[in-house]
């Protein structure tokens, strides 16, 4: 017997008021507005919130480990807090250690992902893919960003061609961004960062069926 919505919401409210995580489950979408309202009210209960000292220390450790440009504009650094770059600078230029060599990679071509015994995996209806937008899909062990342009689709690997990090789609700039270092790629997989010379992303095979379904060649 399904849980009554008032009981389900009470559990969520009780978690929030006791400082616990939001533990949502299937069916909670029916009350999404109420849940979001509850989260905001719970946040308002004790006024403005600041990071705990322990979290701030943890974040500082993470920031210091992220490679980035060794030189910054004064304006960028002073005004907006980009000074974290100095961590890499003063700390032995970690970024250089992780940056790829300036090798003449073939940036306009990439070998396709052709899994042995690969099979086509349905990843959704063509109509569900937004025009000009990337959507992350999984076809077994193959992760890919599928792009729709009109009635055609293309796909590239979701893994950065340098570090084994899963990319994310930044819709504002229409680029695939790497969370691990300052690298980004265009929708067709070409590197867009002038400061990093990288191989292009691997192409992933994708097709549209007669029934208007998008299929990706995966495992």
């Amino acid at each position: 017997m399904p849980e009554q919505p008032e009981n389900r919401i009470e559990k969520i409210v009780d978690d929030l008021l006791h400082g616990r995580r939001l533990r949502l489950k299937a069916g909670d979408a029916e009350e999404k507005e109420a849940i979001i309202a509850a989260a905001r009210l719970a946040a308002a209960r004790s006024g403005p919130h600041r990071m705990s000292p322990a979290f701030r220390r943890r974040l500082a450790g993470i920031l210091d480990a992220i490679p980035r440009e060794p030189r910054l504009t004064r304006r960028a650094a002073l005004v907006a807090g980009l000074g974290v770059a100095a961590g890499a600078l003063a700390g032995g230029v970690v970024g250089k250690a992780l940056a790829p060599a300036a090798a003449p990679y073939p940036i306009s071509a990439s070998s396709p992902v052709l899994p042995r015994n690969g099979r086509w995996t349905d990843v959704g209806a063509l109509a569900d893919f937004g025009e000009g937008q990337a959507r992350l899909v999984k076809a077994g062990a193959v992760g890919a960003f599928v792009f729709r342009r009109g009635q055609t689709v293309t796909a590239v690997s979701s893994m950065c061609s340098h570090l084994p990090c899963e990319l994310w789609w930044e819709s504002g700039s229409s680029l695939l961004e790497c969370p691990c270092h300052p690298a980004s790629f265009t929708a067709d997989g070409k590197p867009s960062s002038p400061s990093y010379t990288l191989p292009a992303l691997n192409e992933v095979k994708v097709r549209v069926t007669a029934a208007g379904r998008v299929e990706v060649l995966g495992t």
């Binding site: 210091d64 030189r71 504009t73 650094a77 000074g83 600078l89």
Partner: peptide, 19 residues
Amino acid sequence: HAGEVVELSSASRATDIAL
């Protein structure tokens, strides 16, 4: 100072700014 390139002197201070 827009566009003026500098190297920041203190990693800890720089991280503090980002934080």
